[in-house]
Write a protein that binds this DNA or RNA. Structure first.
Length: 748
RNA sequence: GCACCCGUAGCUCAGCUGGAUAGAGCGAACGCCUCCGAAGCGUUAGGUCACAAGUUCGAAUCUUGUCGGGUGCACCA
């Protein structure tokens, strides 16, 4: 019998399913191809039955065959089940060898027809738990694609708000998922430091406030230093000023307003041009704000590798290079008629082309005055991302993390520097309001013949975070009557309307700190603070991740400040409980899992028929340390217990428990499902799948915890099983939370 | 007008490539700490899956249409 199927692959859900399908397909081919002639490919799907009593997998294939065979689905399913059971050894494939080189047994214990015609598959619990205890199912290094993820990208003219938190948390989590999948990922945070938003704050400081360059330096120095010394945060000062200047443009007489707007654009042009005092002010402000954004994100465990800035895209003339390429490839054409006369334009992705007519709907890339639009610059930038531009940024170090440095773009950088760009796949975490411009860029890439790149360009889009009217009122904003009736109100930096990220984090920490102070009074202050921060960040990150991307989050403090139910702290609490169990049991999860794998192996080797007695008798008689829970033999009990498919070599007191107690098995099954969930989350760009998966595991553990009292269990083998189940839950919970960027506290 | 997203329990949301009795959390009512931490567990109440037609053995899921909510469709960035 071949046992190489799984030799190096952990026994995980996805592989189990795939192998199962291969076998079933083969059977159908041989069984029914005569009756059907050359049969059309039957679409085989694997489902999960509504209840574990019905098995782990269900195949509705009989329904599909029913009409072709003119037979009742029930009968077909029964035939299939019988045939599969008859040749179980060839169908149910083996799990990997263990360290001793002994095959561990079949992964599938039996097939059964059920319901109206389902073919249900029952996995071999003993075999799989034993294998899972031995192997931490880590995916192998993947395709090796060099991936670039861009997220956060907050305009550097004001403080970050809740909407930016959703972006950064989604992006950061997705990076962690890609890396867990074995991919090499660079993280970029694009900085638009030359736009009107920055110009507005510059106008605010220079003209509304009448500050000089020197004065602005002083303000920045006083408001960006040590958080304990500064009276105000610079990003908050800018938040307020940005709201004020936005109103100021419309607050004067008509003539005044015209003058103010002129001032605004003059300022913008000076910033874009560079090499002048206004540009210097803009540079000071935006750099100071960016640093604060990085501080804020670091509170959430979010780090970056590189900050490309718009100022360098302009000054290093990325556009000029891109423009040539776009003209050469014919993506851009010069419009000579209609409203876009004199512009270089591009046909839109979904445009219906009518011959000869001027495309009034075309996207303008270069204006009639010769300046390039935002989309044009974005195309150039994305050519660089894929290494197609033939021009690079200069680099210098900008922000130091514990383990690495974040670099920033500059016109003339230092050597040596790491290489960024030239990625094979990119993900842009940008909210769904940007899907049109994103589609334009993809369209341009495709039009230039870079179809592979266009295919690997993912707009990781998500819906915005808005405030509930109640929340807006609570924050002291005056809310228009018509807005009070709406489900949510969009945040607006221009109006200064929104929840600032650091305010929210501070409130969360204050709330968790109150709890830890009450629950852990004996712990030192620093520890209580650390725990409070871990819980607060866990709550926040989980809150942002539990919604699927397409859902608008109507933000409310009541929901965000909740630590019960479907929250990060709920999951963290399960971890703390498990850690306490191991502390009191005076053993470790690793030791328990090793012991369990060994014992389970002895008890379950003989699901293959011929070898069972021989193998059972050949088992080495190992002796284990006295008094350790790991020292008891699974097969010690004399009462022989029949397990399905084979008789166990000796009575195994834990095995019936594993067979019958679905609340135990469901935890192991979920562990096996980890790679499946990861794969699903990555292919659909949906981190919420992982969030839900880990919450369900925590729920399953709590359920198990309340049904089985582990430490007082008297039967040693049963106790080993219970402890091993807790160990698996712990291993999974910690791993999965780390993927979500959530820490696992020692106590809480 | 066109494009995209959303409409599922009182509220906030899951429901993967169509499949067996539609699931969580919060809120409500009632229980559970002489036993591994109650940031927990259990029980109960609560749904014509917006509406209509179609495809199918089978639809919350796919198609089309209607209604309702949101967002985006500039030579602004």
């Amino acid at each position: 019998m071949k046992i190489n199927d799984f030799q190096r692959t952990p026994p995980v859900y996805l592989e189990l399913q795939q192998r199962l399908l291969t076998r079933v397909r083969a059977l159908i081919q041989s069984q029914y191809s005569v009756e059907l002639g050359p049969i059309a490919p039957v679409s085989l799907v694997v489902e999960q039955p509504p209840d574990l009593k019905l098995g782990e997998f269900a195949l509705p294939v009989a329904f599909e065959l029913a009409r072709k065979l003119r037979k009742a689905p029930k009968i077909i399913a029964a035939d299939l089940a019988a045939a599969l059971n008859k040749s179980l050894e060839t169908v149910a494939f083996l799990l990997p060898e263990n360290s001793a080189g002994t095959a561990q047994g079949l992964a599938i214990s039996r097939f059964e027809a059920a319901g109206a015609g389902y073919l249900n598959v029952y996995l071999n619990r003993a075999t799989l738990t034993s294998a899972l205890a031995q192997f931490d199912p880590r995916p192998q290094p993947n395709s090796g694609l060099h991936v670039l993820v861009e997220h956060t990208s907050i305009n550097p003219n004001k403080a970050a708000h809740v909407g930016h938190l959703r972006n950064a948390i989604l992006g950061d989590t997705f990076v962690r998922l890609l890396r867990a999948n074995g991919q090499k990922v660079d993280i970029q945070n694009y900085i638009d430091n030359t736009g009107v938003q920055v110009a507005d704050v510059v106008v605010g400081f220079l003209h509304l406030e009448g500050k000089s360059l020197r004065h602005i330096r002083e303000i920045i120095a006083a408001s960006t230093g040590d958080s304990k010394l500064r009276e105000q945060r610079f990003d908050y000062i800018c938040w307020e000023l940005y709201a004020r200047i936005s109103q100021w443009y419309d607050a004067g007489s008509e003539a005044e307003n015209k003058q103010r707007k002129a001032l605004r654009y003059a300022t913008l042009h000076e910033i874009e041009a560079g090499n002048n005092e206004t540009a210097e002010v803009a540079e000071l402000i935006s750099t100071a704000v960016v640093k604060m954004h990085l501080d804020t994100m670091l509170r959430l465990g979010i780090e970056y590798d590189f900050l490309p800035r718009e100022s360098e895209i302009l000054r290093l003339k990325f556009w000029d290079v891109a423009f040539d390429q776009l003209k050469q490839s014919g993506v851009l054409y010069f419009e000579t008629e209609g409203k876009n006369k004199g512009c270089w334009v591009m046909t839109r992705p979904d445009a219906k082309t009518t011959e000869g007519e001027t495309d009034e709907d075309a996207k303008v890339i270069v204006r009639s005055n010769g300046t390039v639009t935002y989309v044009g610059k974005d195309i150039a930038y994305h050519l660089w991302k894929f290494g197609l531009l033939g021009r690079d940024f200069g680099y210098r170090p900008f922000y130091a993390y514990d383990n690495h440095v974040c670099w920033i773009s500059t016109t003339d950088g230092i050597e040596p520097h790491p290489h960024f760009g030239g990625a094979q796949a990119i993900y842009n975490v940008i909210d769904s309001r940007q899907s049109d411009p994103q589609a334009n860029v993809i369209q341009a890439l495709r039009g230039m013949g870079h179809t592979a790149e266009a295919d690997r360009y993912t707009h990781f889009s998500y819906e915005m975070v808005a405030l509930t009217p109640r929340c807006a009122v609570e924050l002291g904003y005056t809310v228009a009557p018509e807005d009070l009736a709406r489900p949510y109100i969009e945040v607006s930096g221009r109006k200064g309307f929104g929840v600032k990220a650091d305010d929210l984090i501070d409130r969360l920490i204050a709330a968790t700190r109150k709890e830890t102070d009450a629950r852990q009074p004996e712990r030192p202050e620093a520890e209580r603070q650390q725990i409070a921060e871990q819980i607060a960040i866990g709550a926040l990150r989980y809150f942002m991740l539990k919604f699927t991307r397409g859902t608008v989050i109507a933000f409310d403090f009541k929901d965000a400040l909740s630590f019960e139910g479907e929250t990060g702290p709920y999951i963290q609490y399960a971890i703390v409980r498990i850690r306490n169990i191991f502390r009191k049991a005076e053993t470790t999860p690793e030791a328990v899992l090793a012991a369990f794998a060994e014992l389970a192996k002895r008890g379950t080797i003989s699901t293959t028929t011929q070898d069972e007695h021989k193998e059972a008798s050949e088992l080495p008689q190992e002796s284990h340390a006295e008094g350790s829970v790991t020292g008891h033999d699974f097969s010690r009990a004399d009462t022989a217990t029949k397990t399905e498919g084979a008789s166990a070599p000796a009575g195994i007191s834990a095995l019936p428990l594993l067979q019958e107690a679905d609340e135990i098995w469901t935890i192991w099954l979920r562990a096996a499902k980890r790679s499946f969930t990861l794969d699903q989350a990555i292919t659909t760009s949906e981190p919420a799948y992982v969030a839900r998966h880990v919450f369900q595991l925590a729920q399953e553990f709590n359920n198990f915890y309340h049904r089985h009292h582990i430490l007082t269990e008297e039967d040693p083998a049963r106790k080993t099983l219970l402890l091993a189940t807790a160990a698996i839950a712990l291993r999974e919970l910690i791993t999965l939370l780390s993927w979500l960027g959530i820490e696992s506290p020692e106590a809480m």
